[in-house]
Design a protein around this nucleic acid. Structure first.
Lengths: 337, 337
DNA sequence: GCTTCCAATGGGAGCGCTCCCAAGATCAGG
DNA sequence: CCTGATCTTGGGAGCGCTCCCATTGGAAGC
């Protein structure tokens, strides 16, 4: 008899037979559940080794009604939003925490109609044990899906509107306030804000922090100069700012990408940083260190954000009800302010 | 009767009953397979809508022996390797292509023993329909796992050693050669290389390209000054270079991160770029545009790399045998050289 | 010596879907 | 009007695992 090509994987039943025990006993032994004698436990282990048995996760999932996976869904208008290194760091944290709970990570970029439809299906079909949701915008359809879904959902950063039950966020207001206060403390009196998308809670919160700080210092906040968190948008916003308020001497940018863009515009315009204009960013990504001059920026613990989101999700999946978490930020001073 | 809490999802059997057809017919209608009358097809559609039915992917997976997911596995010694924005772009491409094939994306960072063990289990248990493998190092245990796995595996970038059956790579040698030739064409005669990890094929290939170009121009290549693709390692390598070869007038760095690091060291050492030393990078990530001076660099189509990997994987999953693909690079000249 | 209790055990019934296959319905051709 | 070919149809048997539950057999208690 020729060996028929990719021979089927051994099943638990075969393991049981080889070990001379029942399927039930084999199953219990495998999941080291109680009520299995030491002898049978060993017999099963031997059979597993001999057969090279690996449990079939799909079958297990069907029987237990648990998929063994958690999804990270990132919203956005187009997939390029995900190119921001921010998400990569979130993933590093989330992946590590999920690994500890022995869950797989599914990544969904809900950045097209097709993508959103697939996420909806994921929710409705319970295709994962839980979901982490990020980068939501105002009136984001994902919020509705999450509400309807009978599935654990943890938000990364609050969505615009009422706070969800479970979320992990960063102290955006506090960070922005600290950055602006720093600018003021360095003697800047005409400080502007290049803010992120105002249809995101992060964008709004950071502008709020900026405004609060200025008001508290008895200075006049400028109206928000909106960017979209990308480098080019920061460069453009800075150009507008320069045109309308030639006398600005300080800029708080809602993230490092935009701050880097501002730096570029400033360089082109011949303004010295920080001598003429001081610039502060937000995020503390690699770009902040590489920029010239290196950016003074608000550090946020991005990997921790991912890690805590995942941990919180696992807690919820296990039937508990954790309280939301707000991670601290801190100002890192370099040379741009 | 109180409505019992999270009422079980409707099953296909219930849909069939409501529609007055058999489970088989309902199944066929759902997957629009042939042999279903128009009338029944519509009845099923109506029942589906009325019940809010969504098929259970796990059950389907068990029956069809297809998981409906593809995994992207990123190797590395620790998870931080993934923080490189390079991977984020790969994911954007892969995710888009996978979406078209209606496959989910599982992300596995094989950056710890635990992580590698989970990948091995994934392979052995056929926990995905196929795998994309990246960032392999010499003697990487993942290569062995991939070989033994009876599962479609597409490599992103070739591993060190014999070329695998299916891979998508970038023309590393050609790109490095072009970069170096450019340096030579600008009159540089003492050109050094800050190369990436030499236990990766990309690191080796780029050094080879550098060496080939110099040899062809009748100049002497310097021995490889090895970094690990990170910014600090580039800064450190540049410092060593400056100490041992104070007269270098050109540097080819194997990626933008290291080039940015080199720039930093050069700035600290008071060397003008490109006047005293010209610098060329590789990748063309955002950092290249933000660096000061903006980096002349070898652009590689990263999103396309991800997209083509995913497409190739889908092709293999569908039973075909595509040929490996090598994507072109091109030099983008900015101000650093 | 005889209950009492509990660990150990294995059979059976699913989990929700696909798919093979036998049987019935439909229709054209002779 | 009958025969054979083609399309529909639904029952049944899995896919591989978990888990409930009834049964067994000692060990411990009186």
């Amino acid at each position: 008899m020729a060996e028929d090509a990719p021979r089927r994987q051994p099943t638990l039943a075969e393991v049981a037979e080889l070990a001379g025990v029942s399927r039930s006993a084999a199953s219990r032994a495998l999941n080291d559940a109680p009520h299995v004698s030491r002898a049978k436990r060993e017999a099963v282990a031997r059979a597993v080794r001999q057969l090279g048995y690996v449990p079939n996760p799909t079958a297990r999932a069907l029987a237990t009604r648990q998929t063994g996976a958690a999804a990270l869904v990132v919203s956005g208008e187009d997939p390029s939003i995900f190119a921001d290194p921010f998400f990569a760091q979130v993933i590093v944290g989330a992946s590590t925490a999920l690994e500890e709970a022995d869950l797989h990570l599914m990544l969904c970029l809900a950045a097209s109609d097709r993508g959103r439809k697939r996420v909806e299906e994921l929710f409705r079909s319970k295709g994962a044990d839980g979901v982490m949701l990020m980068a939501l915008r105002e009136d984001d359809p994902l919020v509705g899906m999450a509400e309807e879904a009978e599935m654990p959902v943890v938000f990364g950063g609050r969505p615009v509107g009422p706070a969800p039950r479970w979320y992990v966020d960063v102290d955006n207001v506090g960070g922005a306030r600290e950055a602006t206060e720093y600018l003021v403390s360095r003697g800047r009196t005409r400080v502007a804000a290049i803010c992120g998308r105002l249809d995101t809670e992060a964008g709004r919160a950071r502008y709020r922090g900026y405004r609060d700080a200025l008001l508290a210092a008895g200075l006049d906040p400028l109206p928000p100069q909106e960017g979209d968190f990308t480098e080019p948008s920061g460069a453009a916003a800075m150009a507008v700012l320069l045109a309308h308020h030639p006398d600005v001497d300080g800029v708080f940018a809602a993230n490092d990408n935009m701050a880097a863009g501002a730096l570029r515009t400033l360089r082109a315009a011949g303004r010295a940083v920080p001598a003429d204009i001081a610039v502060v960013g937000f995020d503390d990504l690699t770009v902040a260190q590489v920029a010239d001059p290196p950016l003074t920026t608000v550090h946020q613990p991005i990997t921790a954000l991912g890690r805590e989101m995942a941990r919180m999700l696992v807690t919820v999946i296990n039937g508990h009800d954790p309280t939301p978490l707000i991670l601290p930020t801190r100002l890192v001073t370099r040379s741009s302010a």
